[in-house]
Amino acid sequence: MADLLNPVDWLLALLQVLLFALAAPLLAAWVKRIKSRLQNRRGPSLLQPYRDLRKLFRKEARVANSASPLFRAAPYVVFSATLIAASTVPLLAVHLPTAILADVIVLVGFLALARFFLALAGMDVGSAFGGMGASREMLISALAEPAMLMAIFTLTMSAHSTNLSSVIQHVLDSGLLLRPSFLFALLALLLVAVAETGRIPIDNPATHLELTMVHEAMILEYSGRHLALMEWAAQIKLLLYGVLISNIFLPWGMAQQLEPLPLLIGLAAIAGKLMLLGVVLAVSETLVAKMRLFRVPAYLNLAFLLGLLGMLSHVILEVGV
């Protein structure tokens, strides 16, 4: 482990985290733009989320009288927990020191920590919306988390490692094999990613319709820099899931040496993959209508069953082959 602790690698890892944070609004803007085009609108510029964030950071924050200190601390906790989770995901290169700091279970743990504080912040002011959003968010995540872990366990069992770098390296080494377990896991992870990032058909990030909102209901009371941090964290989370799916299932193009050219190729590759994934998300959001809350369990059960099928097909068909 000690050999991985050289300063250049650490610098690159830090730069990667920075890139993660800076690129996150871009993906959100890309999805929004494609969606607008599909709906025959021009859509905002790709830089719009950056402008929004800049505006919010410059504005005065307003806090409700009934809020406790937790309300003001929560955005920082949510943001840093999400960023820590993102730092463990290999973005451009396979072997970076941040990937061995924490494995994929820790990643899920930090996302859960962020959600925990998000839900608490929603309940803090004492408005009915916040409680409603928190209650729904915890239901959705409670059902999504086992599905996600089931899909991830399928991958980690075939790679014999929960380390994301090792999983990706395993996929790179074994070449393009159409394994049934990987397909099931991919489908499960796609469904979970849609649920966890609060996209249609589970939640709609573009609405403030009282009776349907989940994520927006929890951050309803936030403003100024607090809101900016919450929005930014949500964008990082979207990018995180995008990178997770594209780099685990289609790792080709990722840099295996930490040199300029492979890193540039890696950057181009991940940008291309994310653009493609963004188009898929935008198309599905345009075609599918939002679900009623009590149909969400069925949707997430499907994700869990797909994960389970992936696991079973791995255990039955692939072990020892």
Partner: peptide, 21 residues
């Protein structure tokens, strides 16, 4: 995993109802 996720929901409820609001 399901247990852990529901436990998180349970303690959000406990803390949110008792200490917040």
């Amino acid at each position: 995993a399901l247990t852990g996720a529901i436990a998180a929901a349970t303690f959000v409820k406990l803390y949110g109802i008792a200490f917040l609001g």
